[in-house]
Design a protein around this nucleic acid. Structure first.
Length: 238
DNA sequence: AATCCATACAACCGCGTGTAG
DNA sequence: TCTACACGCGGTTGTATGGAT
């Protein structure tokens, strides 16, 4: 016995999305959101698609501010660096470091282009030399995404800022963008801290936990995140 | 011009996890 | 506490496209 299918495959369209379907889905989501249920969404929106397919299409393609293709050298380097740190088990985490990129996009880019380059160059130990196997690396444990804040019924969206060079912060060093009094915890408290963590409340009531290019001076660290960093050395999902 | 092959990207599959009842 | 359901994710597959032969 296999797993029960998430939808009736006989009655859903599969394969590439048409522009009309894209438009329908986009319009519906812009107007109504997911209402917390992707499974029933296609029916409500008038689409003959699986809910999972709708979700994927939205997240990977239709969502605003999504970038496609054209990875820069900096992005390549960052992916490479993060892959060396995290591995392939957390593509969403790696993608979170690249604004406008999706996990699927990053994963595809890695599998089609960067992997070969990485493997070839890594044999010569030239890629990401700071993450040689002899050096124990800090773990980026978690980055929370799409947390629901039930009390205020809006979504808390968390992101992380790109880590140009993810290495342990110097003892007690200031973390730019974190506000007035934040400084890097001691190494035994926090092995890795993403720099420039901030919280920005936007007009649409979506809150962004992470770096925001356009808004300066509003950055501060959420208390519970700071607590996690202090006590666990990483940010937990709780 | 036709065919083959490699590449890039979109989409699907199925499992792990969280959560409501 | 248990169960069913939905979500999110990584791995994999399918397909379109372009270059080489």
């Amino acid at each position: 016995m296999g797993r029960a299918p998430c939808c009736d495959k006989a009655n859903v369209k599969r394969g590439p999305w048409s522009p009309q379907e894209d438009e329908t889905l986009k319009n519906y989501l812009m107007k109504h959101g997911t209402a917390g249920n992707w499974i029933t969404l296609p029916q409500k929106a008038g689409l003959k698609r699986c809910g999972k397919s709708c979700r994927l299409r939205w997240l990977n393609y239709l969502r605003p501010h999504i970038k496609h293709g054209g990875f820069t050298d900096e992005e390549d380097q960052l992916i490479c660096t993060l892959y060396a740190t995290i591995g392939s088990r957390q593509w969403s985490l790696i993608a979170a470091q690249l604004p406008g990129r999706t996990d699927n996009d990053v994963k595809n880019h890695w599998n089609t282009k960067l992997k070969k380059k990485f493997l070839a160059e890594n044999t010569n130990a030239t890629v990401c030399p700071q993450f040689s196997t002899s050096t124990p690396q800090p773990q980026v444990e978690d980055h929370v995404f799409d947390h629901k804040n039930s009390s205020e019924s809006h979504v808390l969206r968390f992101e992380q800022t790109p880590i140009p060079n993810p290495s342990p912060l110097p003892l007690g060093s200031d973390v730019s963008g974190l506000g007035s009094s934040f400084s890097a915890p001691l190494p035994n408290e926090v092995s890795l801290l993403s720099n420039s963590i901030s919280l920005v409340k936007e007009e649409n009531e979506t809150q962004w936990f992470g770096y925001h290019d356009n808004i300066e001076g509003e950055a501060f660290l959420l208390d519970f995140v700071y607590e996690d960093l202090l006590h666990n050395g990483f940010v937990s999902q709780d």
